[in-house]
Design a protein around this nucleic acid. Structure first.
Lengths: 197, 197
DNA sequence: AATAATACCATACGCTCGTATTGTTTGTCA
DNA sequence: TGACAAACAATACGAGCGTATGGTATTATT
């Protein structure tokens, strides 16, 4: 990536700060006003910042600038909670979302769950955590998955050993399961934990 | 939060999808075009979605819609890593950021660290996790903090019992410390973990 | 000394934007 | 039955937008 002059860097910094503060990109004239210059040179700056790879611009779209390497966030619905490593409870307010970097979701279909219980505690998944599950990521041995067992859903470690599927908890208090009927809802790809107060 | 009619929900969904796809909010006329209606009713929809608490709108700002419960993200610099519960290593690329919901940081000054080692494994903090530290959140007994001990930094549980400060790991392999010289760099407020393939 | 890149001014075009206003139709609920 | 909300049409206004063009002055680089 080409280096920027001091002024070019200042323009880019302003755009970043503006975006953090307002959550929209500035218009050309807003940038011009900030630096007390006319819109002509701002067009130059935007051309340069594009050419050097720091920005993208959507043609003829107001506030249509984009940071070249700032990934986008997409809303992932929080569908329910997995309780005590056993059953899944739907959440009432289906409008609840957690916003995840698209680098992580990679445009896969995802949903999120709240963790209840301690069945996965030894692998660092504890009560209250928000876990993001991808519905269509490929699953290999050792992956952590959410699986339906009859009418119950649980967070388990998936292993297929010589054709036989084992679903195990990392907490030894819960014995491994060799299920006849099961359906893997998805694979754990991300975890969020907020420490409150 | 007031319930939405089917049509109102569709409009809200379109706005969400548009945002995910284009990373800018649609204009009134773009919404109108999508539903093949005029801009009058779209104004009605936006008023309703605002009144019912799903959207905010910046006055007279093109593409100035905002999701009411989608908080903004602010960049938190990843300053280094905490290795094996003992020392802190600065990260070379200071341009590395993790984007955190401003609901979480609450405009507090924060930084992020990569976790190395297993000193906090029993409390669900494992190797590779990204932890977000607030420099100015109040600290009370039981909080997890990053503390400087002489020239070393570590993740520890903070407790002050009858005037005496104890810094302990949750992994019993590391004995608790009753430090003479120490400085608390900040308090753990958030944790991110990506499960890579 | 010549060339190129940077950093600026000035101005104009036409379109798109949010806003505002007035009105119609349909359905729901007290 | 009467009131109200929802869902739409039609149109007008002025401001703001991205774009384009054609300059000048300064500073590096070759």
């Amino acid at each position: 990536m080409d280096k920027l002059t001091v002024k070019q860097q200042k323009v880019l910094d302003f755009i970043k700060n503006f975006y953090v503060e307002h959550s929209v990109m500035p218009t050309i004239r807003e940038i011009a006003a900030k630096f007390k210059i006319t819109i002509g040179p701002v067009q130059d700056y935007l051309d340069i910042l594009q050419r050097k790879g720091y920005l993208n611009k959507k043609d003829a779209v107001t506030r249509g600038l984009e940071f070249a390497n700032m990934s986008k966030f997409s809303p992932v619905p929080i569908l329910g909670s997995v309780h005590a490593g056993t059953f899944l409870e739907p959440v009432e307010n289906a409008q609840d979302y957690v916003y995840i970097n698209t680098d992580v979701t990679r445009s896969r279909e995802c949903f999120a769950l709240k963790v209840r219980g301690d069945s996965m505690e030894p692998s660092g998944i504890v009560e209250g955590d928000t876990i993001v599950i991808s519905k269509d990521a490929p699953i290999t041995n050792g992956d952590i998955v959410v699986a339906m067992l009859k009418e119950e859903a649980a967070i388990k470690v998936y292993n297929k050993i010589s054709g036989k599927v084992v679903l195990s908890s990392t907490n030894p208090a819960y014995p491994p399961i060799y299920p006849k009927d099961y359906k893997v809802l998805g694979k754990l790809i991300y975890l969020l934990r907020e420490y409150k107060n």
